[in-house]
Nucleic acid binder design. Structure first.
Length: 830
RNA sequence: GCACGAGUGGCGAAAUAGGUAGACGCAGCGGACUUAAAAUCCGCGGGCCUUUCAACGGGCCAUAUGGGUUCGAGUCCCAUCUCGUGCACCA
């Protein structure tokens, strides 16, 4: 076979991509009887073309997939498309192309570009979530989960994205703006469908402790998001009324310092409580608050406004009569929508009390003693109780415990746990998503709770639509404009009924896709349970940290539901999570056409080849760190690829058929040593997610081979052949095309990914001499090269004999001599 | 405000268990090859001081800042600063 002297990646890479596909080398179950490894990257939204971020995630996953294949494992490495979603629909509004058409085009180009990168996917497992064969199972889950009480319809103030023209979930609102399009989010009173994810808040929180292979930042983000707080519910009797106000507090220990109670303006008791004298003022206040959006109300930091209702409550602990106020900062949907105010021990309450001249009473002292009165600021830490009669001297923790019990005994309240997390609202007023399999019938369902379709009626297909006429961005669900879809007989009475016209959030699609990959053609259920048993959970999951409190929380919830349904037998979907950093433009800004810093991967592949691009994204920074694109660094990895090829070409004919079975010695042994060292380095670097140093190790090895004398003896030729062969193998996860080309040129069979990962011999990793550092009082004074087996005495003697060391020891007493085998000697002198 | 993470050359970064700080690469400089350039190959490369024509050497400082533990600290402890991320009138 003729060897191309020059490194020309384009033709070479295409050749191997074709061959891999023909031979199906990446198919699932190639080693069906071996240990399984499920390597997964978050499935992409097919947006048109790959960008550098995609190139990076998939390169990371690909390293592990190929590595584990070579380790002889039964690897599953699938890819698919999160094909529903707003961009395709918005594009349709703009240019009139149907979302299905646009999506199909995009999927095709994504697939092609992924293949051009040489990623090792089993394309037989490919998924497209916008296909009925997939989304029908979303509907199937919906019906099951509704029976389990995990799906319900509610009316609430919802987050309406003014850009996407749909309601979005709490998780998708970032500082009052849409996570996707950054438009303002406003409150809108609407009805929607929600998953009761909060039923799992505690379980999802507890299980985080077991996710030892997840990045700490993701675990923390989820803990914060779930926002568990322990506290108590306390009933405050209302003077002259049968009603009592229930408040939630985490600081029951401060309750004797409570000098007033505050309700949210939306609190249901407000109308009953308010006294005639205050009625006008209160009504105005409530109206004003209602007009403000959640964003506005929480945006004005520090501006607290309130109004007195004229009513009084009674503190159940000291029977004190205290006023009831309304305030804009109290949230109706957290806790009970009512709080007890303890100005002495809460910053907000302190500011509010000062503003409105309400009394401030200290009941907690810091351990050092009483603070000066009047308080200059709230003391919010735990401390020791004071001014609390029999409780004086208790610690805060003790008081919470004892009073909590007392409340329960007296029937005045209870200890409780509150979560910040809300249920997951998943209705979307858009077209390009999974239809919700529910019908409204005025006769059978006057409350519009929704009547479920029968499982046999699935899939409920998304109707074909006239793009121009129907997809108009007026904020009405597009499906409402398709009479043939809307009008349907009631599944119960057969009379005229209307279908639900909202569709599901696309985050539903990504909740269980990892299980579907294992049996994408399966028609009897969402996936084959046996396959799930064999291959789940996912062993390595790679994706962006921006999903910390969205997808990564939703799919954990869904996994638990699937377990309850008996579909899977694990609690958690993913063992090890890798969150890759962002690829920014060379100016450090987000890569975007707008900034003119956008680098299309296809262009780079064309210029340098996929191998060099893969090497670049893996070498420039560790996987979890953000990185900037760099036009000069890519030249560096391209140079490396060229050097590897040039070295192989230089030696191939000479060493191709070399054989040697005796122990190596001399120059040949040095080459063999360097090879073992490289194998060890790369192996360990891959295991600890340090791909940049893995590549650095190979670069060093290559430098060593360049420096080695040209092989002349049979032994030296065999050593060089061993070096080239090993390099081809360890390079495979990073630059697979180049590896296979060298592999083939050496006369080896098949492709590198089918070959076993090379082992290293510890004895051959060691150099014959070990380098010792000699320090005097911790300062470096000399370096020695001594045999491996040199003992402490011999090393110390040799060290003392070094002239530079001797100079520093002269006239001083050695008080101590620290000896670290194989590393250093340190003389401590006075 | 609370929580988490990170600060190392001109730049991207490395240092697995407390043991030679800056591996590997980029840019830069010097050399070889070439009529020349590109490509390629080889070499140099933290700062300051000192010696010297120069080379070789020698000394001190240096991993955000200030302390501490240790024979020895980028690494461990305490405090501070800066940046990034998440949560946030959440009671």
């Amino acid at each position: 076979m003729a060897i191309n002297e020059h490194y020309e990646p384009s033709a070479m890479e295409q050749k191997w991509q074709k061959r891999w596909a023909e031979k199906q080398v990446f198919r699932m179950s190639r080693h069906a009887h071996k240990e399984k490894k499920y390597v997964l990257e978050m499935l992409p939204y097919p947006s048109g073309h790959l960008h550098m971020g995609h190139v990076r995630v998939y390169a990371i996953g690909d390293v592990y997939a190929r590595y584990y294949w070579m380790r002889g494992m039964d690897v599953v490495h699938p890819m698919g498309f999160d094909a529903f979603g707003l961009p395709a629909e918005n594009a349709a509004i703009k240019d009139g192309v149907h979302p299905a058409t646009r999506t199909a085009e995009n999927v095709a180009s994504f697939r092609k570009e992924m293949m051009a990168m040489g990623y090792a996917y089993d394309w037989a497992l490919e998924l497209d979530t916008s296909q009925a064969e997939y989304y029908r199972w979303n509907q199937w889950f919906f019906l099951h989960m509704r029976k389990m009480g995990l799906v319900y319809r509610r009316t609430a103030k919802l987050n309406w994205c003014t850009g996407c023209l749909t309601v979005i979930a709490n998780e998708q609102v970032v500082e009052g703006h849409c996570e996707r399009c950054d438009s303002a989010v406003v409150d809108k009173d609407m009805r929607e469908w929600a998953f009761r994810i909060t039923r799992y808040s505690q379980a999802l929180l507890d299980a985080l402790d077991g996710l030892s292979e997840w990045p700490e930042r993701i675990l923390t983000a989820q803990r914060n998001w779930i926002g568990r707080s322990e506290g108590a519910l306390v009933d405050f009797a209302v003077e002259g009324s049968q009603q009592s106000i229930r408040v939630f507090t985490t600081r029951l220990d401060t309750i004797r310092g409570c000098t007033y109670v505050v309700l949210a303006p939306e609190h249901p008791f407000v109308g009953d409580l308010v006294k005639e004298a205050q009625a006008k003022e209160v009504a105005a206040f409530v109206e004003k608050a209602a007009k403000q959006s959640k964003v506005e109300r929480t945006d004005e930091k520090g501006v607290k406004e309130g109004v007195f209702t004229g009513a009084y409550a009674v503190n159940p602990f000291n029977k004190e009569r205290i006023p009831i106020w309304l305030a804009n900062f109290v949230l109706a949907d957290y806790g009970t929508g009512a709080v007890m105010s303890v100005p002495a021990h809460d910053f907000r309450d302190f500011a509010f009390a000062q503003q409105y001249g309400l009394p401030i009473r200290t009941v907690i002292h810091p351990p050092q003693g009483a603070p000066p009165e009047p308080l200059q600021e709230a003391f919010v830490d735990d401390g020791v109780l004071a001014n609390s009669e029999e409780a004086d001297g208790w610690t805060s923790a003790e008081a919470r415990q004892r009073w909590g019990l007392w409340l329960e005994e007296q029937g005045l309240g209870e200890r409780t746990v509150n979560y910040r997390q809300r249920d997951w609202g998943f209705s979307r007023q858009r077209y390009w998503g999974t239809p919700i399999p529910v019908v409204y019938c005025k006769r059978c369902d006057p409350q519009e709770e929704g009547i479920d379709l029968e499982a046999s009626q699935l899939p409920l297909l998304l109707p074909p639509i006239d793009t121009q006429a129907v997809i108009q961005g007026h904020g009405e669900p597009p499906l409402a404009k398709v009479p043939s879809f809307v009008n349907t007989p009631c599944p119960q009475c057969g009379g005229p009924a209307r279908r639900e016209v909202d569709t599901m959030d696309t985050f539903v699609d990504s909740c269980w896709y990892y299980a579907r990959y294992l049996s994408p053609q399966f028609e009897e259920g969402p996936f084959e349970v046996d396959k799930a048993r064999r291959y789940l959970p996912v062993d390595i999951y790679v994706g962006g940290p921006e999903h910390a409190t969205m997808h990564l929380l939703y799919f954990r919830f869904w996994c638990r539901v699937m377990k309850q349904m008996g579909l899977v037998d694990m609690d958690e979907p993913v063992k090890r999570l890798i969150t890759q950093g962002i690829v920014n433009g060379s100016d450090g800004r987000k890569m975007s056409k707008r900034w003119g810093n956008f680098v299309p991967p296809l262009e780079i592949i064309g210029k340098y080849g996929a191998d060099s691009l893969r090497l670049f994204v893996l070498f420039a920074a560790p996987p979890e760190r953000d990185m900037n694109w760099n036009d000069e660094q890519i030249e560096g990895t391209f140079r490396f690829a060229k050097r590897v090829w040039a070295l192989a070409v230089a030696h191939l004919e000479n060493v191709k058929s070399a054989q040697w079975t005796q122990p190596f010695e001399g120059a040949a042994l040095e080459v063999v040593r360097a090879t073992h060292k490289c194998i060890k380095h790369v192996t360990q670097a891959i295991e600890r997610l340090s791909f940049n140093t893995a590549i650095a190790g190979m670069m060093s090895f290559l430098n060593t081979l360049y420096a080695a004398p040209p092989p002349t003896t049979e032994q030296e030729k065999a050593a060089m052949r061993f070096a080239l062969k090993s390099l081809a193998l360890v390079l495979t996860p990073f630059a697979p095309h180049l590896s296979d080309e060298i592999w083939e040129a050496l006369g080896e069979q098949g492709c590198t990914v089918e070959a076993p990962w090379p082992d290293f011999e510890e004895a051959l990793v060691e150099d014959a001499l070990v380098s010792y550092v000699v320090q005097v009082n911790g300062k470096l004074r000399a370096e020695l090269h001594l045999p491996l087996d040199a003992g402490e005495e011999a090393v110390c003697e040799a060290a003392k004999a070094e002239p530079k060391v001797a100079a520093h020891l002269k006239g001083k007493t050695v008080k101590k001599c620290v000896f670290v085998p194989r590393r250093l000697v340190n003389f401590v002198v006075a």
